[in-house]
């Protein structure tokens, strides 16, 4: 049912990861991406793999959720793996036919890249599964607020993101309503070739745009009436506060960084 739409892909659960400060989660996600690109061999990659696994276990988000977010990426993983297998020529040759040869080096590079991408996807999904979208936009606003010095209005950008999130379900409902109205008049959205179907969408899109603009106009009125005047002098009801858990998590990530650097030095680089 439409009324069941949840904004974003937040997965409700009770866990330390859910309770963590959104700013710290955002920082740690970025840090994770940086570290995983620093990994040069399987030993350092293993550290990050373990870190990913532990984070997921602690979050209490079921594994099938992560599989769901991995699914659309599988073709990309496969293509990258294939490219690595066929292009990287290192180590002993395993088989060769025509102009193509597969080497041990190629296989292990392909595997390395696949694990890296999977960890990346898992960790970024973890962020969106455990953080309410508005908290995320809030966190972005607060983390980027130094940019205000450069006359970039971070508040305005964050407000736009919040409003977009707020109106997604409203507009989806509207699409459903218009589609039904057009169907009742005999519109056909399901059959025909691609171009015909696109054409059938026009009578849905035009009323949708008209109504979206009307909504935006009314919303701007309503916001003005509620004394909205930009980010200046604005306070927030919900303060963000770093707690012990946040610092502990930061500690774990920094230790992993140190581990990766050390393992990179002690073992031979493979990429």
């Amino acid at each position: 049912m439409l009324s069941d739409i949840t904004i974003g892909q937040y997965y409700k659960a009770q866990s330390v990861v859910h309770r963590m400060d959104a700013r710290m989660k955002l920082i740690l996600t970025v840090l994770f991406i940086v570290i995983i690109f620093l990994c040069k061999n399987f030993f350092s990659l293993a550290v990050m793999f373990v870190l990913t696994a532990v984070s997921i276990l602690v979050s209490r988000v079921p594994f099938r959720m992560f599989f769901k977010s991995l699914k659309p990426i599988i073709p990309i993983i496969l293509i990258t793996a294939a490219l690595n297998i066929f292009y990287v020529k290192k180590g002993t040759e395993l088989l060769s036919f025509w102009k193509i040869s597969v080497t041990t080096g190629g296989l292990s590079t392909a595997f390395f890249m696949a694990v890296r991408i999977i960890c990346l996807i898992m960790v970024s999904s973890l962020l969106t599964y455990t953080t309410v979208p508005t908290q995320l936009t809030d966190a972005i606003e607060r983390l980027l607020s130094p940019l205000n010095v450069l006359h970039i209005s971070v508040h305005t950008l964050a407000m736009m993101m919040t409003l977009a999130l707020r109106f997604i379900p409203t507009l989806i409902e509207e699409i459903e309503r218009i589609t039904n109205a057009q169907k009742a008049r005999g519109a056909d959205f399901e059959s025909g070739r691609f171009l015909e179907r696109v054409k059938a969408m026009i009578p849905v899109l035009i009323p949708l745009f008209v109504s979206a603009f009307r909504r935006a106009y009314e919303l701007s009125f309503a916001m003005t009436c509620r004394c909205y005047h930009g980010g200046e002098g604005r306070t927030r009801m919900k303060q963000m506060k770093l707690s012990a858990v946040d610092f502990a998590a930061l500690g774990v990530f920094l230790l992993s960084l140190a581990g990766v650097i050390v393992l990179n030095r002690f073992f031979q680089a493979m990429i």
């Binding site: 009314e218 919303l219 009125f221 309503a222 509620r226 004394c227 002098g233 306070t235 927030r236």
Partner: peptide, 29 residues
């Protein structure tokens, strides 16, 4: 308060929306 409630609610959670006005006024958290 306007006719269409959908076009005057700005937040994705009820209590956040109610907080919008006082936040704009700079009231203490």
């Amino acid at each position: 308060v306007f006719q269409n409630p959908d076009n005057q609610i700005v937040a994705t959670i009820v209590e956040d929306d109610v907080a919008f006005g006082p936040e704009n006024l700079g009231v203490e958290p």
